[in-house]
Design a protein around this nucleic acid. Structure first.
Lengths: 140, 140
DNA sequence: ATCGTAGTTTAGAATTTGTCTAAGCTATTT
DNA sequence: AAATAGCTTAGACAAATTCTAAACTACGAT
């Protein structure tokens, strides 16, 4: 019988399938952590920790694979602010970031709150893929 | 006697001293490679390679120390574009970058060619240290 | 339902980038 | 010239990420 609480995460399953990714146990669990908890910025280690806390056994290799696959699929966006550490942003809309170096904290700036004018033309033979603006801040 | 070709790098010696750094053999050699060859972007490994090519024996630890000391002293600027790799830019004036991901190539955009308007106020208790704009490009 | 297979996951090794340590040098001061 | 604070070094160490090869699993075809 088709009970009332079947398919609790059907939308996630669909999003993965649309991205050409099989909805495996691990991917679904990570998608749930990442995409159903509001806007956030996570590192691989953080996500791994959260998965283990939630009793989901996932290897670190899978965390990395998944983060990159999700990024490719447009479900996440990678933000590089520090050498040797990557943050993944669940907000894939057009926006920029504040980065507090001392605290290692990354914060969104809504897209409309930064406006660039007079962007130069890219070198010939190339096209612009994206513009990242990072406003580096420190405690005053 | 004070021959005509003595003190061939006196300006570099002075710049180091002004920065509170002793003008050692290694630092002078690296300063020469970095600062007397026009504008460039180097990684630690690249600089190490160039130093060895130039018959200057320098350990990698010294390369890292020197790059960071120079950055602190304002002789270089660190640019983070990729996780797990740092570029150091000899152009310390106000400017931004094009980054070609596939080629791993970093290119300057003169400061006047990008203008930001409507920068939002930083979170309270913080002040803006710097704004980095990275225009990510790809082959068209 | 079961099978075959391509796509996934895994543990652990390997790689890469960068830092640390303790001992030996060296620029500078006295 | 000697003392000393600062610098450099080789090599060990550490952290983040990728690789590998074997085991597992989703899923279309039977």
């Amino acid at each position: 019988m088709s009970g009332m609480s079947s398919r609790p995460y059907a939308p996630l399953v669909d999003r993965l399938r649309e991205a050409g990714l099989r909805p495996t146990r691990q991917r679904l669990a990570l998608a749930r952590i990442l995409l159903m908890n509001g806007q956030r910025h996570v590192t691989a280690e953080q996500l791994h920790g959260e998965a283990l806390e939630a009793e989901i056994s996932v290897s670190l290799a899978t965390i990395y694979n998944t983060l990159h696959q999700f990024t490719h699929a447009g479900l996440l966006r990678e933000v590089v602010v520090e050498p040797g550490r990557s943050y993944f942003d669940t907000n894939t809309t057009d926006h920029h970031h504040f980065f507090h170096e001392q605290a290692g904290r990354l914060e969104d700036i809504p897209g409309e709150q930064v406006r660039l004018v007079e962007l130069p033309p890219p070198p010939s033979g190339t096209i612009i893929r994206r513009v990242d603006v990072i406003v580096r801040i420190k405690s005053s």
